[in-house]
Amino acid sequence: MAAVATRPRRSNTRIAGGLILSALALLAVCAASILLGSRTINLAALAQTDLTVILDMRVPRTVLGLLAGAALAVSGTLLQGVARNPLADPGIMGINAGAAVAVVTGILVLGRQATGASVWLAFLGAGAAIAAVYTTASFGREGATPVKLALAGVVVTAVCSSVTSAIVLADADALEELRVWQVGALAGRYWPVVLQVGPYVLVGLVAAMFLARPLNLLALGDALAISLGQHVRRNRTITFVVVAVLCGAATAACGPIAFLGLMVPHLVRLVTGPDYRWILAYSFVLGPLVLLLCDIVGRLVSAPGELQVGVVLGVVGAPVFITIVRLRRGVEL
């Protein structure tokens, strides 16, 4: 008994150490994100414009990377846990498609000058999509089962995508706006956007920390969770609300960023095993780490221009994800 009890504790120390190392790496990446870019900045001789670039462009960009990275990775983790589906991510749950349809509808109805509103529209669209997915999947006695959630996600994505296509075919302005929005980028969104979505992400992240225990129990299956005194339906609903807030805010600010929400939880499980307390803590750190790294790569590979982080993440993410899946252990929930 004593031997059994000490084994996990030793591995907990190792996992905690890994988390601290990851946090230090994140700090270094933040510093790099502030210092590196298409403009060469000499810290010894800072001009007025250098300060503008650092304080008003690179710092908000880095903060946005932290917020969006954490939001997407944590919501991916929550979704995979609550849907008990290793493929669940914001894209599959209809969130990106819902946000996109809201953005183009906004352009169609309000006109091009309303681009400042597209952050809120994307937020609304993402929230509406995930609400639709959850409600659709909840019909029936057994509630939102993993299979029904996945199917509902596919349906909502299909409906939203067709409406989006219909609108952009008819309206060139909407197409132009969508073209810019749907790449997914941290660039060009400064303090106003950070301040718009920041509070929602922070509230969502704090709430997510309280969901670790319910998710651990949910992982045992609905029946066992209920027998252990869990309010399965209530916890599932709360989790979906938190996911909607996190994902909606991140997607609204940056556009749809593929792969992060899917990849990071799998990456994390390789290290932590199935305990959601660790998975969530790691996602919280590794999400921003991966996102900011990809963003920095995007800034450097195509200088003097830039490559959007969404593009880099897709290119880097696919092979990394395949590698993780081939390691098998990561897919186990």
């Binding site: 870019g37 298409s38 403009r39 670039v53 830039e306």
Partner: peptide, 9 residues
């Protein structure tokens, strides 16, 4: 000549 906004000055 395409410049990033960081170099717009």
């Amino acid at each position: 000549e395409s410049l990033s906004f960081e170099n717009a000055d």
